[in-house]
């Protein structure tokens, strides 16, 4: 598999800061995959994205982009990548469309703006000043901004943050479409949901260090218990019983339950990614580190 990025022992310290925000992380991003960088607030996700997008250039360690050192790339690197920032990045006194037109003209490769706006449901609002947009609209415009130059690699920092489920769905579908067309995605998030739905591989980051790299599925299997819990109704209240997943088909007690009781719920015990997040990083996904 082709490596789009190959990062080794990456370190970065903010000026006037005592501690390293990124403390020697290594990972690869493969062509055509959605790679997730997952971690609690302050873990170093945005910092890592800013280094990979060459906004911060004084890092230690090596970053190869398509096999060549990132620092050897000039401005043409930016023709290849699209960057979705964590916060809105628009001129508030220009309309949504004016913003996009201004940025689009700076690239050699451009895509039509209006279809993009339409895909994220902003076409009707294109002539309104961005100052009058809601947070969710600004975040969707951020995504359009990232897609203007038909990027090969898409960087997305907390794309679905602050979006209602419907709009989050729209963006996730867009990301999937982008991937299906052969694009590579580097996604930073603290939302398990995003990872579970989108990521092919995921690295957990905490305190500037990567603590585990895996696939969402492998993580679930590794950290989950292989069991099933059956809740059933008996004697006027709900009771629960847990069975081993192995040999379940021949488990007489389990089969008897299915036949004789009124089953209310049945859950396999693969731990949810939310629980794994807490287990691996030691912090709850929504709590600040």
């Amino acid at each position: 598999m082709n490596k789009v990025f190959s990062v080794r022992d990456l370190r970065f310290t903010y000026p006037k800061s005592e501690i390293e925000a990124v403390q020697g992380i290594s990972f690869d991003v493969h062509e055509g995959e959605v790679f997730g960088l997952l971690g609690p607030s302050g873990a170093g996700k945005s910092t890592t994205q800013k280094i990979l997008t060459k906004l911060f250039r004084s890092y230690q360690g090596t970053i190869l982009y398509n096999g060549k050192d990132l620092s050897d790339y000039r401005n043409d690197y930016y023709e290849d990548i699209g960057v979705g920032f964590e916060l809105p990045v628009h001129f508030s006194k220009l309309t949504g469309l004016e913003n996009m037109q201004f940025f689009a003209q700076l690239y050699k490769q451009r895509t039509a703006i209006e279809p993009l706006l339409e895909q994220v449901g902003l076409l009707e609002d294109k002539d309104r000043l961005v100052a009058t947009y809601s947070k969710g609209m600004k975040m969707r415009l951020n995504f359009v901004r990232a897609m203007l130059n038909k990027p090969k690699v898409l960087f997305l920092d907390e794309v679905t943050n602050g979006l209602d489920p419907k709009n989050a769905r729209i963006l996730k579908d867009q990301i999937r479409t982008f991937k299906e067309a052969g694009g590579t995605v580097f996604l930073s998030t603290h939302l398990m949901n995003d990872v579970e739905e989108l990521c092919d591989r995921v690295a957990f980051i905490r305190g500037g260090k990567i603590v585990e790299t895996s696939t969402p599925r492998a993580l679930k299997i590794k950290h989950g218990q292989r069991s099933v819990t059956v809740e059933y109704y008996e004697n006027n209240h709900t009771q629960a019983e847990t069975f081993d997943l192995d040999g379940l088909a021949d488990n007489a007690a389990f089969l008897r339950l299915l036949k004789e009781k009124k089953i209310e719920t049945m859950h396999s015990g693969e731990t949810s990614l939310d629980e794994i997040f807490i287990k691996v990083t030691g912090v709850s996904a929504h709590e600040d580190a």
């Binding site: 043409d76 690197y77 930016y78 809105p88 001129f91």
Partner: peptide, 14 residues
Amino acid sequence: QENTIKTLMITPSG
């Protein structure tokens, strides 16, 4: 405040 410099700096302008 508007974060617009960042997004200009990731264009191929220099």
